[in-house]
């Protein structure tokens, strides 16, 4: 843990995934995300974005190649550790929030990790503070707005102190105000991020680096400013300039 050279938050080498029916979802993905680096993952539906994200914490297993998170290889034996290092947030917060109160849900991860009660309480408070939802502990997720539920969903993984956040379509369905506060939140969070999105304004506002995925391959990986200015590239992958 105490090496002088900082390890990348995420290192993917030669990752390939073939679904049981023979569909090649990912072919030879190579991707490195430095500690604290914020990377947008864009590409048309079916390009393999979600499949890639699900490899980060071993929900899907690589057909070939390897994934390392903060220096730990994803594998059967490291699974429980990896789950704590990758904060996976799904598109629909209703899938993520299954507890009666905001507190219980944010506490799920730390409780599962076996932390003592006061440590859990501390982590929940800190995570909710970070997403600007302090004071909502006793509220029921069911009664929150979509924007609030998205923030709580992010808090549910922040409480586990992850090295990298993997977010799937964080801005989908948000009204402008909620979207703006999400942008601010993502800008402020110190963790490395790999965020799948169709929202090019979000990319422009939050992510200095952009990776374009198409047909299971990385077809472009460059500073967002460069790629967003390349109308021909955006057009050929069905993307729109912000």
């Amino acid at each position: 843990m105490s090496e002088s050279i900082p390890r990348p938050a995420l290192a993917v080498h030669g990752l390939r995934h073939v679904y049981p029916d023979g569909t090649v979802a990912l072919s030879t993905i190579d991707l490195t995300v430095a500690a604290g680096e914020k990377v947008a993952l864009v590409g048309p539906n079916g390009a393999g974005k979600s499949t890639l994200l699900l490899h980060l914490n071993g929900v899907l297993r690589a057909t070939a190649g390897q994934v390392a998170v903060a220096g730990t290889l994803v594998g059967e034996r490291t699974l429980a550790e990896i789950r704590a290092r990758v904060g996976m947030v799904f598109q629909d917060p209703d899938d993520q929030l299954f507890s009666p109160t905001v507190f219980d849900d944010v506490a799920f991860g730390p409780l599962h990790m076996g932390y003592p009660r006061d440590e859990v309480t501390r982590r929940v408070a800190a995570a909710l503070e970070q997403v600007g939802m302090a004071g909502f502990e006793r509220r029921m997720p069911h009664h929150l707005s979509l924007g609030q539920r998205k923030r709580v969903a992010i808090a549910t993984v922040l409480s586990m102190d992850p090295a990298i956040l993997a977010l799937d379509e964080p801005s989908a369905g948000l009204d402008p105000r909620a979207r703006r506060s999400l942008v601010t939140l993502l800008q402020q969070l110190p963790q490395a991020m790999l965020v799948s999105t169709h929202d090019m304004r979000l990319v422009r506002d939050v992510f200095p680096r952009m990776v374009v995925l198409s047909g299971g391959m990385i077809v472009a990986d460059a500073p967002s400013a460069t790629l967003l200015a390349d109308a021909a590239l955006l057009d050929s992958y069905g993307l729109e300039a912000p």
Binding site: A80, E81, R83, A84, V86, M88, D95, M113, V157
Partner: peptide
């Protein structure tokens, strides 16, 4: 999807029983 989201947060420390 709920089961998957739960699975993603079912973590443990190295060597500790979660």
């Amino acid at each position: 999807r709920m089961l998957r989201a739960r699975e993603c947060r079912s973590a443990a420390h190295h060597g500790r029983r979660g």
